[in-house]
Design a protein around this nucleic acid. Structure first.
Length: 236
DNA sequence: TAGGCCATCTGGTCCT
DNA sequence: AGGACCAGATGGCCTA
């Protein structure tokens, strides 16, 4: 069990490494100092290991003292090496944490952008992440169905082709399947949330958007919301 | 107070 | 080797 880092650093006779645990070194600094402090190559450690340079010399008290001093130096070098290795790992971990934090911030920004183009609720309640994804799925589906029905109703058809670029047509989803959605979206995570119904394809009470046509149904979405949001333009 | 949601940290894995 | 991505763990905050 290695000694705590603070203890290790306090034992070091290197003044520059004996303080400031909060300000971690750069990788370059760490690598350089790790190389300098390696037990086998450090300037304070003799090239020979274990056995005295002169056979039989360790019998004298002076030789024994020197041997003890060499051991102490090797011990300090090892401790310093471990501390710096710990510091190197720590600095890399801190960098990785920073990147991960930034990545999640970007992900949240994308979710906010997605929320901004979805119909908002009257009380300005912010959708949770899972609700946003579910709601977006349903919303896209509802819009696609609107286009499809518009296609059927317009003379000569072609509403979808006129309103969407060709590459979009194959991407449009089919109607949400409650069975498959139960698996793909998971269950129970937002089941108890008051906002889970609008975002859940598996909602029990669907609001039928339009003239009772199930293709217009938007699961759980309040009727007045649909009628007031500019994103929903009923097809006549 | 329990449960849900979220942010953050962390170690593992994969990719460039 | 370093970065991106992922999933698990943890703790804080909020609400019913």
């Amino acid at each position: 069990m290695p000694a705590p880092l603070e203890t290790c650093l306090s034992d070091l006779d290197c003044p520059s490494s004996s303080s400031d645990l909060s300000g971690f070194l750069t990788d370059e600094e760490d690598c350089t100092r790790l190389q300098q402090s390696a037990p086998a190559s450090g300037p304070s450690v003799p090239a020979h290991r274990g056995a005295p340079a002169i056979p039989g010399a360790s019998d004298t008290p002076r030789a024994q003292e020197e041997e003890q001093e060499r051991r102490r130096r090797r011990g300090r070098a090892r401790v310093r090496s471990e501390a710096l290795l710990h510091s190197l790992r720590r600095s890399r971990r801190v960098k990785a944490n920073d990147r991960e934090r930034n990545r999640m911030h970007n992900l949240n920004a994308a979710l906010d952008a997605l929320r901004s183009v979805l119909p908002s609720f009257p009380d300005d309640t912010k959708l949770t992440k899972i609700e946003t994804l579910r709601f977006a799925y349903n919303y896209i589906w509802a819009l696609a169905e609107t286009l499809r029905l518009a296609d059927q109703g317009l003379p000569g058809g072609g509403a979808r082709e006129r309103l969407l670029p060709p590459q979009c047509a194959p991407c449009l989803p089919g109607p949400p399947s409650p069975a498959s959605d139960a698996e793909s979206w998971g269950s129970g995570a937002a089941a108890s949330s008051p906002l889970s119904d609008p975002s859940s394809p598996a909602a029990s009470e669907d609001f039928s958007y339009g003239l009772g046509d199930p293709l217009f149904s938007f699961p759980g979405l309040p009727k007045d919301l649909i009628q007031t949001t500019p994103c929903f333009i009923p097809y006549h």
